[in-house]
Design a protein around this nucleic acid. Structure first.
Lengths: 210, 210
DNA sequence: TGTACATCAGTGAACGCGCGTTCACTGATGTAC
DNA sequence: TGTACATCAGTGAACGCGCGTTCACTGATGTAC
């Protein structure tokens, strides 16, 4: 009755697979995610996974969504640290800066998770037949829009620059993250990367506000 | 004596493989490059490729370098169109804009080639035993540095912003290219993308020069 | 409280596939004399 | 100009691998009465 060996039922295989997927992607990258490798890591037969996910693609999208949530969480933590300054314009600008540096630092700290989070934007979440525009806009995108709105309301952003400003912002931080994790900046030491990231954000903010 | 069928010797298999690799990457992306698929496309036995390339990786790097050259060529064409203006500062700024829009337009026109060109920056070209710093800096990078130098000399770039300004520029254009080819902007129509790209370059240039 | 039975969550084995790469070989080319 | 021979550039077949996925099945769980 007592099971000193592994029980026949795992308990929560679905959660265990997602956790294994996160660890695997963290260490080996998104391309290392495979049904056999994952089930091996969890100690279960390959086809057991098909009780919980339709196929590999559906699994990867699920884990990617989790990675995206973690990215959003990291960014939000950093944005919330900005104190409620006397000058709301300064605060709004600092929150945009926190968004950008948070985004970049997440990518530098865990390139595999960053790559994974990007997957969830390559492929729409496949909202299924109950189709709803519930969470079509990914959280990081909303955080960015929020920061820009705040700048707008505080008068830190010239009105003619507000529309579509998010794409210039996203391009800068996303591009920097790519250059640093898998481009020509790969391998540069962290302090230098942090300085370059701050400089890039300075240039961006200057371009938006000047 | 006369060969109406394919001759035993191909003629220039190496060049044919590279050409096939470019077409394949253009249509199906970098991940579609494989020895068997390539040799099939050329009409030759899989192992024939090993007369010309040590392995798949070496082949991909070779084709990636060619894609990088094409990217550089596209950018240069666009930069050279900028007329020699009366005001050298204006000209320098316009050349930087041409760099950015050229980079982005290459990516939009041929996402597969853009992806391929990026591969050559992920992996150093493996200069071999004759080691030389001959072409370690990739051409697009040099074009960007040239444009910034020109701005610097024309007084269009505050001196304190010159150092490392290339990374903010590269991040913006590279990030925009990624967002547009494989990120949330994928699928947007070309006119709208062009407008967003111009807006992003406006913001960048404003940030550098203001 | 106990038992029959539907349902769930795994197992074990296998299918079929395409891949990169290697081996021994052969048809064609070019060069020395 | 002709011939022997080294070299080159392909062929044909196979190895071994790991993958995603499916099939039929079984051990465990929970629920109705």
């Amino acid at each position: 009755v007592a099971g000193d060996t592994r029980p026949y039922h795992h308990g929560d295989l679905r959660a265990a697979l997602i956790e294994a997927g996160l660890q695997l992607a963290r260490q080996k990258g998104v391309s290392a995610l495979g049904m056999r490798e994952l089930t091996r890591a969890v100690g279960v037969t390959p086809n057991a996974a098909y009780r919980h996910f339709a196929n590999l693609r559906a699994f990867v999208l699920t884990v990617a969504l989790e990675a995206q949530h973690r990215l959003a969480h990291t960014i939000l933590d950093r944005m919330q640290v900005i104190p409620i300054d006397a000058n709301p314009a300064v605060r709004a600008v600092e929150r945009l800066r926190a968004f950008g540096l948070g985004y970049i630092h997440f990518a530098l700290a865990d390139p595999g998770w960053f790559e994974l989070a990007c997957v969830s934007q390559e492929e729409p979440p496949d909202t299924g037949p109950h189709g709803g525009a519930k969470t079509t806009v990914p959280p990081p995108h909303q955080l960015l829009l929020g920061a820009l709105d705040e700048m707008d309301q505080a008068g830190a952003l010239p009105p003619h620059r507000r529309a579509n400003a998010e794409w210039a912002c996203w391009a800068t931080v996303h591009g920097f993250a790519n250059l640093a994790t898998s481009g020509p900046l790969r391998g540069m030491d962290r302090d230098a990367l942090n300085r370059l990231a701050e400089q890039a954000m300075d240039t961006l903010i200057n371009g938006l506000t000047a």
